[in-house]
Write a protein that binds this DNA or RNA. Structure first.
Lengths: 105, 105
DNA sequence: GTTTTTAACTTACATTTCGTAACTTAGTTT
DNA sequence: AAACTAAGTTACGAAATGTAAGTTAAAAAC
């Protein structure tokens, strides 16, 4: 009577993509490799949550973290191939929003 | 120095689509019009949150709510044109998940 | 050689959101 | 009158989130 016939891969994808901030972070990283502080300022996320999400996206192999041993140390984040493969999803969202979303009331 | 140059329409779209459950609910409703209890059982969401999200999606004109005056009363939910227009987004996610997401570890 | 500066985090804590389970409502059937 | 049903609603504890201050390490400034 009650079935979840939804594909487990798709469910997992939704879990990652719908976790708050993740889609916006990926969108931001589509611009190219960026440092922690840049992402933070551009996206307007708190450092507590940013660190958490970047770690999650790294574990999911969507984002790659690189340490640049300057002083002070700088960390660069960039999309992996798996991450770049999300571009069509973001493009579809952009397309939808430009056609259907309006901000006025 | 710190700019949010992200398009407000796109930001709003993300806000709606990334709100937990919403994408899954829209995915479920792509199957066709459905009653409250069907959605609840298929998706595995609590009634408290389901009611909240359906109300949100109705306000955003993504979902339409119809009262069927049977006994007991039945409510049918279906996607609007704006809601159906999200199909490409969901398809892109499905495509990505089938290529890149694996469940094993 | 002590203080300051900087990037990338951590931590503590208050606020908000979420999940669970029980309850409500209003028209039937029993 | 009591029971049943669909679609919610309510109360409340648990989990996630935002805010702001603190930490670390090395090197540049004083």
């Amino acid at each position: 009577m009650d079935q979840k016939k939804i594909c487990p891969r798709f469910e997992k994808a939704l879990k990652i993509l719908n976790h708050s901030w993740n889609t916006l972070l990926i969108y931001q990283l589509l611009e190219g490799p960026q440092r922690y502080s840049t992402i933070k300022n551009q996206v307007g996320i708190s450092s507590r949550v940013l660190t958490e999400r970047l770690k999650e996206l790294e574990i999911e192999n969507i984002v790659k973290r690189t340490v640049i041993p300057s002083t002070p140390v700088v960390i660069e984040y960039e999309l992996t191939e798996k991450g770049h493969a999300l571009a069509p999803v973001l493009k579809a969202m952009e397309q939808w929003s430009s056609t259907w979303v309006n901000i006025e009331e």
